[in-house]
């Protein structure tokens, strides 16, 4: 992984008291209830949580796609609420379900993305060539995206998030729905991108993925961060607290943190 900058420098991502409420006709839903986060420059940071825990809502607030009810969020030192356009220049975003325009070709999509980040047509074209080589999609570059496989779409989505060389890359479940081989390819891409100095903030449902890729992780449940640390720290803490004879897995940490437990092979929720 890339060298992580010390905590004294500007954080790649910083959130304080981040809150998101949705008002419906009947009630106010508290999707995120006060998230504090600090991701150092160069880190691969994993953001985990069960479905509906507030992961995607938090990412959408950090990426300027959702308004913030209260609290503050900074990406690469830029306040996402006060200066969203500058924050957008500093971050790349690849959300769930590779958001691509299926009627364009891979090359057209990347060139368009470059143009939207103020590149000249020739610069955008050159950058598209570079990225197509990086994600190994040169051969498919001039085919319509609707014919791409799930793995190819994911890699193209990653490439489009990198067009403007962002400081921070946000990935929301980058490997959901991919076969194991495609998942390993995406992992390799992410390692390569991180080695070049890009901070990666990723959400995932796959704990093995977090264990393999992330320098640090945070687990969110019920709109609040319930655990934060390196995978090794979190496992050690659980082993010590539970007095376990062997090292727990990240799955055990996750189940413990989210109030669920294994019973005869099933996962069940327990009261806290």
């Amino acid at each position: 992984m890339a060298k992580v900058q010390s905590s004294g420098a500007t954080a790649a991502v910083q959130a304080e008291g981040l809150v998101k409420h949705y008002a419906t006709k009947k009630e106010v839903i508290e999707a995120v209830r006060g998230v504090d986060l600090r991701v150092e420059t160069g880190e691969v940071f994993g953001f985990l949580g069960p479905n509906g825990a507030g992961k995607s809502t938090t990412v959408r607030m950090l990426t300027t796609l959702l308004s913030i009810t209260s609290g503050s969020a900074f990406v690469a030192g830029v306040d996402v609420a006060r200066d969203p356009d500058e924050a957008r220049r500093r971050m790349g975003v690849a959300l769930q379900e590779a958001g691509l325009d299926a009627r364009q070709t891979g090359r057209e999509l990347l060139v368009l993305q470059g143009r939207l980040f103020d590149m000249s047509p020739s610069d955008a074209s050159a950058r598209a060539d570079e990225l197509l080589a990086l994600v190994e999609l040169e051969e498919a570059a001039d085919r319509r995206i609707k014919g791409y496989s799930g793995g190819m779409k994911r890699r193209l989505d990653l490439a489009s998030a990198l067009v403007h060389e962002p400081d921070v890359l946000f990935l929301d479940e980058p490997t959901t729905g991919l076969d194991p081989a495609s998942r390993l390819t995406v992992w390799d891409e992410l390692r390569r991108i991180n080695t070049r100095g890009t901070t990666i903030f990723l959400t995932t449902q796959y704990l093995e993925e977090a264990d393999q890729l992330c320098d640090r992780i945070a687990i969110i449940d019920g709109g609040l961060i319930v655990r934060e640390g390196t995978p090794a720290q979190l496992k050690a803490e659980l082993r010590e607290r539970r007095g376990l004879a062997t090292d727990p897995t990240l799955d055990d940490v996750f189940l413990d943190a989210t109030g669920r437990t294994r019973v005869a092979g099933d996962v069940q929720e327990v009261s806290r």
């Binding site: 769930q96 691509l100 103020d118």
Partner: peptide, 13 residues
Amino acid sequence: EGGYFDKLRATPI
């Protein structure tokens, strides 16, 4: 529905 609209919204245009 497909998510590309969010991709556009995440650009500084």
